Amino acid sequence: MGESNESVSVDAEKIYLGGKEHLIRTVSGSVSVIVYGDPDKPALITYPDLALNYMSCFQGLFFCPEAASLLLHNFCVYHISPPGHELGAATICPDDPVPSLDGLADQIIEILNYFRLGAVMCMGVTAGAYVLTLFAMKYRERVLGLILVSPLCRAPSWSEWFYNKVMSNLLYYYGMCGLVTEYLLQRYFSKEVRGSSEVPESDIVRACRKLLDERQSANVSRFLEAINGRRDITSGLKRLRCRTLIFVGEHSTFHSEAIHMMSKLDRRYSALVEVQACGSMVTEEQPHAMLIPMEYFLMGYGLYRPCQFSDSPRSPLSPSCISPELLSPESMGLKLKPIKTRVALEDSD
């Protein structure tokens, strides 16, 4: 699909902890983007997993002072929500076509063109990681690097396809019912934080449960349908031009997917970090585990953490959990030039 510059933005009267929401009309429908930081800095775009938005998928990471200082010191952050997943979203008209994941990847280029962004850093979780990986394959010159959390790259297994179909039926007949919520929480978190009859569930799980209750079931179902129809993009991984950092929880439902993806990437430019005692959503469950690897990764682009946080916090990672490639200067791109803040795009005729 060719690049489009015809997007229209409506600035909502909503401010989220200093960020401003933009509703951008694209070929695949309207999409919410919440922008934090100085727009003259390099751009970091985020994309969440199924039924989540930036608040429920990335707030743990951005509320971690050391990680927030690293990211917000170096980037202007553009949080993209899947269609109908933003805070306060209305139900999408059932007559609107369900966008494919390819369509959602094309939607990102429209967002970048609206904000006049050049090449960007990308961070995605599970389904969002798939969308951003696909975007990086289709628009390689627009991606500086990928930070992927519990990513997907293959078509659904038979068991995943079946469970997704069951969840689709539950969403259709019962909405965001208890069974759907429990399935999603198992997708995101390890058993330790979900709790049991003896141990109460953690605060992050309770907060996520509350946010899931606010989701429009029809909107979640549309994104789920797109995810369940995804294609295998393994063959394109070797052609990625950008460096890639993958995080996956030891107890993630998609642990084998992350291992498979890492095995297909060019090991000179990629690294895998396995986080102990953690589920799929490392950004919420173990955000501190991401700090040191991200510091190494971003050093390759001439970026750094402000000196007031010179001492890295204690990390749940053990040395054996860090892939040797992560500590390789060549792998982390220490010879790369620093990220340019912005590339001017010529207006199309």
Rank of each mutant, 00 (worst) to 15 (best):
S157H: 03
W161Q: 06
L144P: 01
L144G: 02
N113D: 14
Y139A: 02
E160P: 00
V149W: 01
Y139C: 02
T126W: 01
A129V: 05
E160R: 02
A136K: 00
V149E: 14
R116L: 13
M123F: 04
K138Q: 14
E160Y: 02
E160D: 14
A119C: 05
G118A: 11
W161Y: 15
V166H: 01
R142E: 13
F162Q: 08
A119D: 12
L152I: 05
P151I: 09
F162T: 04
E160W: 00
L144M: 04
T126L: 13
V143S: 11
G128N: 07
S150L: 05
P151T: 04
S150K: 01
T133N: 07
K165D: 07
N164R: 13
P151L: 08
R154M: 14
L117D: 06
F135V: 03
I147W: 04
A127W: 04
A119K: 11
A155M: 05
E160H: 01
Y130G: 00
G124M: 04
L117Q: 12
R154N: 06
L171R: 01
S159H: 05
W158K: 10
L134N: 14
A155P: 01
G128I: 08
L146D: 08
M137C: 12
L152C: 02
V131L: 14
L152W: 04
A136V: 07
G124V: 01
T133R: 00
V125G: 03
M123L: 15
Y130T: 01
